[in-house]
Amino acid sequence: MSATASKSAGSRGPLSRDDWVAAATHVLAQKSIDAVRVDALSRQLNVTRGSFYWHFRSRTELLDAILTAWRNAATEQVIDRFERRRTSPEEQIRDLLSLPFRGPSARRAADTELAIRAWARRDAMARKVVDEVDATRLSYIAQCFTALGLELAEARLRAFTLYGYEVAESLLAAQGSDRQKRERRAFMEWILLNTPAGRAGGAD
């Protein structure tokens, strides 16, 4: 048996590690973490288990790779893209508010994230990564608000409000028409960018 099994007919070459991670992530998003099994993935990809074990020592290593890929794509790469654009803090905040509404890609990203959060409710490895991702995102959003001249305590409060809104839009994606969603987004933008500093209070 060859070290790397071939892809199914019509594909372009042997499966890579990224192919396995992408396939496993899709199954996770559409079903659950329990459905991410080596045998089932091998059948879906029309390869032998040998292809999997060429890239991964175990299912646990695959699960860790799923989490790493999600963290990189959904957090670190997004922040890096925002930073390279060098837009104003106000525009960065508006862009952050728009993330849940960026078409099919946003819906796929939300499906994956919700599945990972469900996984994290009963798995320590996933919980650790989700907590790290949340902390990184909140820290970045707070930096956007401090760039507007807000004190750190209030920047953190507004960051939590913005982030909670984004998570809620993912959880409640079926609620409201497109117009209502635009109105909610405009309302959040008004609250976050126009409410006088110090109104919320709070401490470090």
Rank of each mutant, 00 (worst) to 15 (best):
R57C: 10
K31S: 11
L28I: 06
R59I: 12
S51V: 14
V21Q: 00
A23M: 09
L63E: 08
R49Q: 14
D19G: 10
K31F: 02
I33V: 12
S42T: 14
R37N: 06
A69S: 02
W70M: 01
A69H: 02
F52G: 02
T48W: 03
E76N: 07
Q30D: 13
R57F: 07
L41V: 13
Q30T: 15
T75H: 02
L28P: 01
Q44K: 10
S42A: 15
T68A: 03
R37A: 06
A24S: 10
N46E: 11
L63M: 05
A23C: 08
Q44F: 03
V36L: 13
E61V: 13
D34G: 05
L63D: 03
A74F: 09
G50V: 09
L41R: 13
A29L: 12
R59P: 02
D39I: 15
E61W: 01
A65Y: 00
R59T: 03
R57L: 12
V38A: 08
R59C: 03
D64N: 12
S51I: 10
V27R: 03
T25M: 10
A22S: 09
D39F: 00
W20M: 11
S32R: 13
R43I: 13
T75G: 00
A65G: 05
Q77F: 00
R43A: 07
H55T: 05
W70H: 07
L63V: 07
D34F: 11
A22Y: 03
H26L: 08
L62W: 12
Q44S: 11
S58L: 05
R71P: 05
Y53A: 05
I33T: 07
S32D: 14
R49A: 14
N72M: 05
R57G: 07
L63C: 11
L28S: 01
V78L: 13
Q30F: 03
Y53N: 10
Y53G: 09
V47N: 09
T48A: 09
R43P: 06
L67I: 04
S42N: 10
F52A: 11
N72K: 15
A65C: 07
R43M: 11
F56Q: 06
S51M: 11
